[in-house]
Design a binder for these strands. Structure first.
Lengths: 201, 201
DNA sequence: CTCGGTGTGTAAACAGTGTTCACATCTTGC
DNA sequence: GCAAGATGTGAACACTGTTTACACACCGAG
């Protein structure tokens, strides 16, 4: 659709949104500058008024994908309300977002890959919550309520992160056809994390 | 260097070898057909007599990278000789190749990514050993010698695979700067796997 | 030994890419 | 109301993967 005015008005965010759509269905590397320009209704060169590189656009799409996962996780946490923090509540909150992480990768593999590839090139902004930070907070609560021993406070984050990220990447890389993967991968990950960290397992 | 004879003689394997070198230092996606042709001393079109696609060449490089990891793991196993299989020996063998997997990713991140990206497009050949199969065998020995309970025989492979692959990918994606990662990642992975699976932990 | 067929290499072209540049157009602050 | 800066344009450039028509080299059958 041709624009009415000479200027687009919000090309930068429109380009990111379009890039996000491409990445969702075909992956980050399927983003091509001229196609983005066409979709947005603008000449190819216009895109480079807002991004020095195509790589910078991809990096913004990557950041945007991470934000989407973070928002999903935050929404999960909000659903629990903000009553007093019991051990049981801490468990449920943590396990809900752990599941969410894996489910996100399974249901949107391209987007998940986009979110975590090249992500050194697109550091999180100061104030926006990263999936990592959200996970970290809920683990802190697990330690505070005694679900995880204080001695494991250091180990717990890397243990949980490794588990969810490992299962997620195995699924997004077509390695799902191995024994033991018949079960729901999110269930499996939670089971593994319990064994590694929970005091009562 | 210009060739002496009109025909190259072994262009296909030379191209894969050259692609491997590129992937090792700059990643799979840095492989460019014309550059490979130049390095090998041949015209750009010649490459396509041996690969229908550049993607097929990349897939062969990917398979080659997986083979390299597999060979490293096999070399580790052979170093243990083939005496009688005790529980202690089974542990050492398994933990050695688990470490190797993570160490490979840390020391050759580009090659590791190349090995496991797109790897649906380059299935392992019938007879060449995949890292996955090698890991699977050593886990079988852990069950056979009682280091892992028989009830966990199903869970163990996916648990170990998830742990090593998760830690490896976290490192190759620039996510190493998180708390708890000061320790040697291979050590950490082994510790986690022990907690998940070993009967005496 | 020859001689055709098949496998392998070449040069030139094509369509498509990221990116730049000189120029056009709009917007905005004074 | 107007200069200055931000934003969009069209044409180019260098580069890519890939194809095509042709050239050379090997190899087995006669």
């Amino acid at each position: 659709m041709p624009r009415t005015s000479y200027h687009h008005g919000d090309l930068r965010t429109a380009a990111i949104r379009e890039g996000f759509a491409v990445a969702e269905t075909a992956g980050l590397e399927a983003i091509v500058a001229r196609e983005i320009a066409r979709s947005v209704g603008v000449s190819p060169a216009a895109v480079f008024r807002h991004f020095p590189d195509l790589e910078h656009l991809k990096a913004e799409v990557s950041r945007s994908a991470r934000e989407k996962l973070a928002r999903l996780m935050l929404r999960d946490l909000e659903a629990f309300g903000n009553g007093p923090l019991t051990a049981e509540l801490a468990r449920q909150r943590f396990e809900r977002i752990g599941r969410r992480y894996v489910e996100f990768a399974v249901s949107s593999p391209h987007l998940f890959n986009a979110a975590f590839s090249n992500c050194g090139a697109s550091p999180a902004r100061e104030d926006d919550p990263s999936p990592w930070n959200i996970l970290l907070e809920t683990i802190h609560d697990l330690v505070a309520t005694g679900v995880i021993a204080k001695a494991d406070a250091e180990l717990a984050p890397v243990a949980a992160w490794t588990a969810v990220h490992g299962m997620a990447t195995l699924y997004t890389q077509g390695l799902k056809r191995v024994s033991g993967f018949d079960d729901d991968p999110a269930d499996t990950v939670i089971k593994l994390i319990r064994r590694m960290l929970y005091t009562d397992s």
